[in-house]
């Protein structure tokens, strides 16, 4: 674990989580979950374009777009009854949307373990977030060709 290699935007999220006491950390995750942007129409009407992430305990779908200039955009959908999954998605959206493809690919696979959530959320639940990141990176690699 070498936090020094984290992109400043992810580093900022890690510091936000580190700055609050345990009890408020879940509340922070909940706030993230409430800020997850809704799907744009082009995906809302074509759900077949979304990739399922079965590693999350509740169904989550995501889409990744890499623009010609290499900028990455992320889209997620998860039900309101799955706030933890939504929270994980929102953290990745806040940290990665708009970055360059190389910056996304450089995110360490174990990023989710740096948020201080393991004891509050359980390592098993956190695996869902690692799986989302892995799928995002794979799609970025595929689309960049």
């Amino acid at each position: 674990m070498t936090p020094a290699t984290l992109h400043p935007r992810l580093q900022e999220i890690v510091e936000d989580f580190a700055a609050v006491p345990d009890r408020d950390r879940l509340q922070l995750l909940l706030e993230y979950s409430q800020d997850l942007p809704a799907l744009p129409e082009r995906y809302a009407e074509h759900r077949d374009l979304l990739e399922p992430v079965p590693e999350c305990q509740t169904p989550l779908f995501l889409a990744v777009e890499v623009e010609p200039d290499s900028v990455v955009h992320l889209f997620f959908e998860a039900p309101a009854e799955a706030p933890t999954t939504r929270g994980f998605a929102a953290i990745l959206h806040a940290g990665l949307d708009g970055l360059e493809a190389d910056e996304v690919l450089a995110v360490p696979a174990e990023f989710s373990t740096q948020l201080g959530l393991a004891d509050l959320v359980s390592p098993l639940r956190l695996r869902g977030m690692a799986a989302m990141l892995a799928r995002i990176k794979r799609q970025v690699r595929d689309q960049r060709g």
Partner: peptide, 9 residues
């Protein structure tokens, strides 16, 4: 709950 945040919602 299965979801650790659902109670908070």
């Amino acid at each position: 709950d299965e979801d650790v945040l659902l109670y908070e919602t």
